[in-house]
């Protein structure tokens, strides 16, 4: 959060020990740790709060369901974080969810093996991301507009090819979304595959963003595009990669959703992009670009997830949930601003 960027604790520790410290070299790190702690702390507080207020909240079963339900927002949040760090945005991911899930179901119904149909879905998401990237870089359309256009086109497309009707998929299509690992008893019904996918994606992309050259360039492009270009960074390529990652993550979420329902959902995913962006922002991503982390997006998603499930179980209506999530978005960003200003 604030103006600190991904910081590998081990690197910071190295720096602290090696840098001939004329002054306490690790101060920045402590402040950063505190920042992380604040959102994570908020998550824990919420969790405890709901455990007290809603009787059945803190049961293993419920926690697992929560993880399962939150996996789609988390995946989308991770993807969109990449585009936001480059200084862009991806509004199309809600529609991409519907499109990719539907493409996969259609492919499966056409007799393709399930795995191949899902790959088809992923490919369609990657294509959407690629097109977004081309519009933003090649045609120099502002990301907000380009992806807004894609949001409408993709939605219109999926509604056209399906006639706006959900179609059931073969039973085998539902395994991915509904099966679990480590099923022990009714108390511990096992961990759903989507949760593993979410964890894997978070680890892989978190590492990618933090530790690889392309990840570093993603920050650089968002922080100062011209300086990046003059440093020899291929700015367009980096941006296209960011949009492809966003499309890919949304496609994963779309396939998981379709699989959980075992139907295509041409009307699904409407306004999900807003939740994903909110999750990313709660997690400390700056819409100005240059700042944000995968871990932040994950925690942000879970805050939204806990709020949703917790409030439902406490008997609050969906409308109240909306209010709560809105307030959390505003609150988390203003805390950032206040802390930034204090300096």
């Amino acid at each position: 959060m604030s103006n600190e960027i991904t910081r590998e604790p081990t690197i910071a520790a190295e720096a602290e020990s090696k840098a001939e410290s004329k002054a306490p070299a690790g101060f920045g790190r402590k402040k950063f740790a505190l920042d992380r702690f604040v959102i994570f702390g908020a998550f824990v507080v919420l969790f405890i709060l709901f455990s007290v207020v809603a009787k059945n909240f803190f049961t293993m079963r419920n926690v697992l369901t929560l993880a399962l339900q939150t996996s789609t927002v988390t995946l989308m949040g991770i993807g969109v974080t990449f585009t936001i760090i480059t200084g862009g945005i991806d509004l199309s991911i809600g529609s991409v969810i519907a499109l990719t899930g539907t493409v996969a179901v259609i492919a499966a119904n056409a007799g393709m093996p399930i795995w191949l149909s899902m790959v088809m879905g992923l490919v369609s998401g990657i294509v959407c991301g690629f097109l977004n990237g081309i519009m933003v870089t090649g045609l120099r359309i502002p990301p907000f507009i380009a992806t807004l256009g894609m949001m409408m086109v993709a939605r219109g497309f999926v509604l056209t090819i399906t006639n706006a009707m959900s179609k059931p998929a073969p039973d085998a299509f539902g395994h991915l979304g509904n099966d679990t690992l480590f099923h022990l008893s009714s108390k511990f019904p096992g961990i759903g595959y989507p949760v593993f996918i979410m964890i894997a994606v978070a680890i892989v992309f978190g590492f990618f963003l933090r530790k690889t050259r392309i990840g570093r360039y993603t920050y650089a492009v968002g922080s100062n595009e011209e300086a990046s270009r003059l440093s020899g960074i291929k700015v367009s390529r980096i941006k296209v990669i960011a949009y492809i990652i966003s499309g890919f993550c949304a496609a994963l979420a779309g396939i998981i959703l379709a699989s959980r329902m075992v139907t295509s959902q041409p009307n699904g995913g409407i306004s999900y992009e807003l939740n994903a962006i909110a999750a990313s922002v709660i997690g400390g991503t700056s819409l100005m670009g240059g700042i944000g982390t995968v871990a932040g997006a994950v925690v942000g998603s879970f805050i939204i997830g806990v709020l949703g499930v917790g409030l439902t179980m406490s008997g609050a209506s969906f409308f109240v949930q909306q209010i709560a999530i809105g307030l959390v978005v505003i609150g988390s960003v203003s805390i950032d601003q206040i802390r930034y200003k204090k300096k």
Partner: peptide, 28 residues
């Protein structure tokens, strides 16, 4: 044109030559 001011000192110094401090697969 020269700096990514929101980024850190080390990240700016290596910006034009990240390959030099990377291992295989572009890992820094």
């Amino acid at each position: 044109e020269g700096l990514a001011v929101k980024m850190r000192l080390d990240q700016n110094v290596t910006m034009a030559n990240l390959g030099e401090v990377s291992r295989r697969f572009g890992i820094i």
